[in-house]
Design a protein around this nucleic acid. Structure first.
Lengths: 219, 219
DNA sequence: GTTTTCCAAACAGTATACAGAATGAAAAAC
DNA sequence: GTTTTTCATTCTGTATACTGTTTGGAAAAC
């Protein structure tokens, strides 16, 4: 019997490495992602690199120019505004659908909250925050909703990563506020009807954008 | 100077042909889309076929199995339910955002309505119906909203195409109802505030699913 | 000094080739 | 007759090679 945990294909490997480079900030927004150079760097041929670029375009981390060249996506404040609008449309809906399931079992949310209390780095906190929201969306059991969220999440991750790298926001105070808000949301799911869950998420998502200053017109 | 209207690349060509085959019903749901066979049929190599498959997967017309093989997507009534839920989340939001623009200029919607009155085939009517909704979403000026809609639209197109090919629904009565509803929506955009536009679209999308019988568990 | 022209390098689009995995039917074992 | 094994076929994953286009800078023209 062979190792059932299939080793990642070269495409997957290239995708992971490129994603890490982009989200980790190793590549600047707008940087050219030339296939040949990346193929050499990753030690694979251009074919898997190509697939990685397509995959990451779908995740919102890469964009293609008119001549077919791939670049690290450049996000503007307006892009962020768009993302926020979509979150406001999708997340309350997800909360309402997820409410019955989360009422029965909110342990995943609680584990996330506990992990967030222990978290050290800003990056980790950001990830856990997005994970919290993703848990609710996943609990909606709407596969397409989760798929759409995946696209938004990639861009959110990109945006927040840059923001945190550049400015030292996410102070202890905002972290405490987030922890408190998440705890309150869990309570709502445990004891309130779906419509209340929908409202509390709407309010949370709306408020979440407020502690983000509207900044950096120019990277 | 060369022809500035760039001829479609082989990838685009393969994408269009395959999309037409799928939406036109030439390929049954679940049918294997083997790269070699398609490459031969389209007279290109496997590379452009591969890209076409990725593109159409993103559009929701193709799905990949666990072993990397591509199939024509199989849609279940539950899938349709998911799509409907997402429309309910996205379209009212789009309507609210689009309201100011459409109030100033609703000519595109009116042209669509006129075309729909003249339309003959069921397929054409379906397309124009989806186009009507797409016009509103485009008028929201939220590029990501339009992008997400693109994914949903592919699947809706797929579902409705099959439905109409199998059953002879979309009678004259439902057509008249649609025409009336769209006319009423245009009027709302022309004279009512964004919140009313949001509500009317919510109601329309909700009602739209009702004349669709919950049918065909098995293709 | 500024603009235009031209060219070499870089890049993406595509074809072809080969290796390895999945599949399904025939053959063997029970 | 049913199950298991085998194996040729089919399919995808990936590498490599070739072609045409884009790009950016050097050279020429003004």
């Amino acid at each position: 019997m062979k190792n059932t945990i299939s080793l990642a294909s070269r495409s997957d490997s290239a995708t992971s490495r490129l994603r890490a480079d982009i989200l980790g900030g190793a590549l600047d927004p707008g940087a050219l992602l030339a296939e040949t150079a990346m193929a050499e760097r990753f030690g694979v041929s251009r074919v898997p690199v190509r697939e990685a670029l397509f995959t990451l375009e779908r995740e919102g981390l890469v964009e293609f120019g008119t001549t077919g060249r791939a670049f690290v996506k450049v996000l503007t404040p307006q892009d962020f505004q768009e993302l926020h609008t979509l979150r406001l449309a999708l997340e309350p809906m997800a909360a309402r659908l997820a409410a019955p399931r989360l009422r029965k079992d909110s342990s995943a949310l609680e584990r996330n909250l506990a992990a967030m209390r222990r978290a050290k780095s800003v990056r980790q906190i950001t990830r856990l925050d997005l994970d919290f929201h993703e848990l609710i969306i996943a609990a909606s059991a709407n596969t397409r909703l989760l798929k759409l969220w995946g696209i938004l999440r990639g861009e959110l991750d990109l945006w927040l990563g840059r923001l945190h790298r550049r400015h030292q926001i996410q102070t202890e105070q905002t972290l405490d506020e987030t922890l408190e808000a998440h705890a309150s949301i869990i309570q709502t799911f445990q004891s309130q009807p779906p419509s209340a869950c929908e409202r509390v998420i709407h309010k949370h998502v709306q408020g979440w954008s407020e502690w983000l200053p509207t900044l950096e017109v120019q990277p």
